[in-house]
């Protein structure tokens, strides 16, 4: 069983502890990917045209015999309307709101995905392969003493993370903010930001939840509410993860 250092807020090694059993789960990238894909699919919202869009006319067809196309026309004129081939008409095969985007994953498979994704956060090679940056020689996952949970100020949280040696990853996320490709730009999500570290805390009303959430790419999660999507964003295992000491202990109870 591998060991991790517990770091103080100033970055010194306080002591060394053994990792919980969950961190020695077999690496199953296929299962993790499937669980994350399903998770993202289940987050999708239904979309489609408004019911009746392009069909709010009173129309009838003249039929044959007048030497014009047999399209349906407005009642009080000759203007063609409503059909998909007419200006302002309804769409031919629009996306429908009834469509079920959700995907099912078996319960035990989902549990395996979570455990396996958790174990991947302890593998420096996989974390580097995801593109994360952290100080050479740091033991993964990064475990910081419990005082971190009480820090309310974002500046102080950043200072503590800098002392430990993971703030480079936050800088990477900040530098990586780009204008999103595609239509999302005009739909209220103009920028995309890389995901940097995940901070796992033991209680959900910890002060650091507010203290850390505005750092670029940082997400704060409660130890009992972890899921594959947080531990392996995009289905790629090995996120840089920071645990507080008691959050790690909670995982030991699994």
């Amino acid at each position: 069983m591998s060991k991790v250092n517990i770091y103080s807020l100033s970055g010194e090694v306080l002591r060394t502890e053994a990792l919980p059993k969950a961190f020695s789960t077999q690496f199953r990238p296929d299962v993790i990917h499937r669980a994350v894909v399903a998770e993202e699919a289940n987050k999708r919202q239904p979309y489609g045209p408004k019911p009746g869009a392009g069909a709010r006319h009173s129309v009838s067809t003249w039929g044959k015999g007048r030497g014009v196309a047999r399209v349906q026309r407005l009642a009080q004129g000759a203007k063609a309307a409503e059909s998909p081939n007419n200006v302002g008409g309804r769409r031919a095969h629009p996306p429908r709101v009834e469509r079920d985007w959700s995907k099912k994953v078996n319960r035990k498979e989902k549990a395996l995905a979570k455990m396996s994704a958790l174990a991947a956060t302890a593998d420096a090679e996989k974390v580097r392969a995801r593109g994360h940056r952290f100080k050479e020689g740091l033991t993964l996952p990064v475990v910081i003493e419990d005082r971190l949970e009480g820090i309310e100020s974002t500046t102080d949280v950043l200072a503590a993370l800098r002392n430990v040696g993971v703030s480079d990853d936050i800088a990477r996320a900040k530098d990586g903010i780009r204008i999103r490709a595609g239509r999302g730009k005009m739909r209220g999500r103009p920028y995309r930001m890389p995901r940097s570290l995940l901070l796992v805390v033991s209680v959900h009303d910890a002060a650091v939840v507010k203290g850390a959430r505005n750092l670029p790419g940082v997400e704060v999660a409660y130890a009992d509410r972890l899921n594959p999507g947080l531990l392996a964003p995009g289905g790629m295992p090995g996120r840089l993860t920071v645990f507080t000491e008691s959050a790690l202990r909670k995982i030991g109870e699994w």
């Binding site: 077999q26 690496f27 199953r28 990238p29 296929d30 299962v31």
Partner: peptide, 10 residues
């Protein structure tokens, strides 16, 4: 398409 094994360990 032949599916094959998805588990890299296996």
């Amino acid at each position: 398409m032949k599916a094959g094994k998805t588990d890299p360990n296996l």
